[in-house]
Each structure stands twice: as C-alpha cells, then as structure tokens.
C-alpha cells in the first residue's frame, strides 16, 4: 500500500502545527519556569519539523542548532542562576490577565480573519527536492550582503554587551 505524498505532507503539517500550538499554550500556562522551558523546546522542535515540510531544510537545521541548541541552553542557564519560586502567580490582578488575553485574542482573530478573507495569488508549486542551502548562500553573499554584515556586527555588539552587563564588579 502506497500512502500518497500529499496526505503525508498535509498530515505532518497539521500534526506538528497542533504540537507547536500545544507547546506554546504550555509555555503560557505552566507554573514552573522549567516546565515552560521544556514546552518551548517542544514548540521549537515542532516548528523545525514544519520547516522541513515547507521545504526549508537549511532553516530547519538552523532552528534546531540556534534555538534548541543555543538559546534554550542559555535560558536554562538563566533559570539555573536565578532563584525560582515554584508557584509564581501572573502579574497584577486577574483583570490584567483578562485584558492581556483579550488583546492577544483580538490580534489573533483579526489577523486570521484578514488572512482567511484576503485574495491570495494561487500558490506556485516549486520542486520540493531542491536543497535550499546553495540558494540561501548565494542570496546572503549577493543581494543581502549588507544586512549580512550588519548582522555580524550586531552579534559582535551583543556578545560584548552581554559580557559587560553580566560580569561581576
């Protein structure tokens, strides 16, 4: 029995999309900060899987390396180096939480309504078996070389700044 590729692609997309949203809700609703971090790992890994399904193989690897590998380790170090209360209530009163939920919900509803009701140009199916690494590299060192250099300087500044801010004395 051959499972059609379209079914696999669509099924994978919706499964990992659901996992990503569940993980995001877990970040939002978990009481312990460490649990929030684990849920964030789940969301980031699901997003990486979505990138594979959307034909962005290089970005999926970068997502795993940078987010799950580097940023999450940094966040776990931050959790480790600071005292954590287990049951930390949310900020402010219940009214503020309701207001924040209303604002976020309104943004989601408006964005989704615009997305659904807009006329999008018909999707063009590009071949999915083309590796994107070469194209991205040519883009980075071609038309996007100036943003690339600025990003390098930004990373250098962030590195120096983080060292200066966080060191003792």
């Amino acid at each position: 029995m051959v499972i059609p590729t379209a079914f696999l692609v669509a099924g994978g997309f919706y499964t990992f999309g659901l996992l990503a949203i569940i993980g995001a809700l877990g970040v939002l609703l978990a009481h312990r900060v460490f649990h929030s971090a684990l849920f964030l790992v789940m969301t980031l890994a699901s997003v990486a899987a979505e990138f594979v399904i959307l034909g962005a193989d290089f970005l999926a690897m970068v997502e795993i390396l940078v987010y799950v590998g580097a940023i999450m380790v940094l966040i776990l170090f931050g959790i480790m180096l600071t005292p954590q209360q287990v049951h930390l209530p949310d900020i402010g009163s219940a009214g503020r939480s309701v207001a924040a939920a209303l604002v976020a919900g309104a943004i989601f509803v408006i964005t989704a309504a615009v997305v659904v009701t807009s006329e999008w140009p018909r999707s063009v199916v590009t071949p999915m078996d083309v590796p994107t690494t070469q194209i991205i590299g040519q883009q980075l060192f071609g038309p996007y070389v100036l943003p690339f250099e600025i990003a390098s300087v930004l990373l250098l500044i962030a590195m120096i700044g983080a060292i200066v801010i966080a060191r003792e004395d």
Binding site: G17, V27, G105, I107, F108, A112, V115, V116
Partner: peptide, 14 residues
C-alpha cells in the same frame, strides 16, 4: 501557515 504563525504570535504576546 499564516494562521499558525498568528497563533504562535498571539500566544507569545499573551
């Protein structure tokens, strides 16, 4: 895909 992105953005914002 756009709705998924909007959902992640809204949850993060909340």
């Amino acid at each position: 895909g756009l709705v998924l992105g909007a959902a992640l953005f809204a949850i993060g914002m909340a």
